[in-house]
Design a protein around this nucleic acid. Structure first.
Lengths: 351, 351
DNA sequence: TTTTAGCACTCGCATCTCTTGAGTGCTAAT
DNA sequence: ATTAGCACTCAAGAGATGCGAGTGCTAAAA
């Protein structure tokens, strides 16, 4: 059953007022705000209907109404205006995007911080790695007689290294041999395929350098594992306290610790959703701790087939329009930066 | 003026009770607790004296007394028993110390998290780098015709790398030349010494590869800068909310955002203090936001002349004895792990 | 049939008062 | 110097009270 035009307007007025004030709103105020030329009594009737249909709720008899999760859902699906970023806002975001290019990890971490600062909500950011990543090549560099650096590079162009110290001396020739062995025997394999059997075979071939093979391959495995593990960065958790719904210590406490835990694993329902933001409202969340909070997130492209996800967590009464506009703008800019190494067109470096 | 033996005992009883309960304590309770065989009236007189001398405070007439910062200071300086870690505690700490060896950065970050979990207070951890760090060697690896990896290693054995993509092809010979140039001209220099002039000279020598020199040297500069910048990791900020003194949103909010800010720069008063923990109580803190919180920290050795600092922030009524014991134990273990790559003797890997 | 005005009713919230009890300071006795 | 006793203080909690925003319902108007 569809809602009448007027009811939609009422619902919208309720939501938009509640988003701003965090206070229940009464029929009179709606009458003024929604500037339908009807009296508060009419609104009252409509609001009673809306409540019956589950779009509004009453915290207690004779307080105003507040939107229910169902109401929010209707709002974001149908009613929400596309929020236009103001000049000032785009500038702030652009300024934020001008971060020095750093290792991927740091970019992601920093992006989270920026979003937290920008939105005043706790933010999270993660890169979704793939299980199917492989090592493309190994390089070994002798730095002293008894120490060498192993450099591994994955097929997604991520490079990691580690310094190994030995208790014996090592010749350039040995290292060369090892290098060949690694590059012929252990490239193109996923984490799962780096089996112990393989190691045993290789060890044989390596003769006296058998222990080194193991060290380097173990390291390669660690790299693959680290990259495939979606590691979530969170930032700005303290921002929660600024919003009235988390004044009750209990709520704040539990949500905060949930966000700090490493268990927090946001996931985007629309998965590959190219652009625009995903919104998950209150009880739609799977995690218990998020049941009365909402999550808004946008995904961005990391190049090399990797995707990132960035978003914020806040009260159900978030300003979805504004937040999702900012997030998707930010995500788009981030894609540019990360994959092209430059900035989106039309964004000048601020002095 | 020195305090009588009895007064010290009273002060101590007040502090130890207050640390546990976070409630003001009255004369009667002290009389029971401190098992001096005197009546509560006597205690009352002594407590009045202690208050006059600034060791105790009264939140309001006819509440019990609580220790003042001055009182805490006396306590940690003279009265505090060395806290013995229980078997269980050492085991928990040892278990925590069994983290997989990772990049230095991660170890530090993780150490912070562990301390936060262990102590139930927000924790911070940082590595104090030196400004005098230099690049010891460069290595360049050609990975495709138009891409190479630069690996730099500092004199403190930190290794970093970066992948460079070019819009033209590159020969092995060119790279070789570049390599020599870098290793002869740019090693052994601190960040400050990597001057533009030097670059200009080198560019000349490099002929057609002049832009590459710049890219790699810039990268090296970034590495040095990153390492010398003390970057502070914080963890477990949400733990604050568990303690009654931060139930007042205001306090919690301001402290939390202070800790999240990057501006938070703890520093150890005793500087090089080999072992044991440093304690900074309430108003002794320089930062405004910490004026009524305390900081306990311990430093640990990172090997290669680097030092790390790890600590917690909490209410002034922290259990200084317990926390500082744990921290210094943890710090000692950490030194071992980081610098030796092994575990302190007598700590078996738990199954 | 829809909208409006009017009115009695509900209930959260802020305010106030009162009571309670822990803890104090002082004084006089030991 | 220590103790017992006593009057006094004050924060915190429990009711009591009034206010007012907001509602649902009814009956009249459009």
């Amino acid at each position: 059953m569809d809602l009448s035009e007027r009811k939609k307007k009422i619902l919208r007025a309720v939501i938009e007022s509640y988003v701003q004030t965090a206070e229940p709103i009464g029929s009179k105020a709606v009458a003024d705000l929604a500037k339908l030329n009807v009296s508060s009594a009419t609104i009252r009737n409509d609001m009673a209907d809306l409540e019956e249909q589950g779009y509004l709720e009453q915290p207690h008899t004779s307080a105003g109404r507040i939107p229910s999760p169902k109401g929010y859902r209707l709002y974001v699906n149908e009613l929400m205006d596309e929020y236009k970023l103001s000049m000032q806002e785009t500038e702030r975001i652009n300024a934020a995007l001008h971060m020095r290019m750093k290792a991927l990890d740091k970019v992601i971490d920093e992006a989270g911080r920026m979003v937290a600062k920008l939105t005043q909500y706790p933010a999270f950011a993660l890169a979704a790695g793939s299980e199917r990543m492989t090592i493309r090549r190994f390089d070994l560099l002798l730095v002293e007689q008894n120490a060498f650096i192993a450099v591994v590079m994955t097929d997604t162009n991520v490079v990691r290294n580690k310094l190994f110290r030995l208790d014996r001396e090592l010749s350039q020739a040995q290292l060369q041999m090892l290098d060949t062995l690694l590059n012929t025997g252990f490239t193109g394999l996923t984490l799962a395929e780096l089996s112990p059997e393989l190691l045993r075979v290789a060890r044989h071939a390596a003769q006296e350098a058998y222990d080194l093979i193991e060290m380097v391959v173990t390291f390669a495995g660690e790299v693959l594992e680290e990259l495939s593990r979606r590691s979530v960065h969170t930032a700005g958790i303290a921002n929660l306290l600024e919003h009235p719904e988390y004044q009750s210590l209990e709520k704040a406490q539990s949500l905060m610790s949930f966000l700090s835990e490493e268990e927090f694993r946001p996931f985007s329902p629309s998965g590959a959703s190219g652009m625009g933001a995903d919104i998950v409202i209150g009880p739609e969340n799977v995690a218990e701790a998020l049941k009365d909070s909402s999550v808004v997130m946008a995904s961005y492209d990391l190049g090399d087939g990797m995707k990132g996800l960035i978003g914020v967590v806040g009260p159900t009464r978030m300003d979805y329009a504004k937040i999702s506009a900012r997030l998707s703008y930010f995500a788009k800019g981030l894609s540019w930066i990360v994959s092209q190494g430059g900035l989106p067109p039309g964004t000048e470096e601020p002095k």
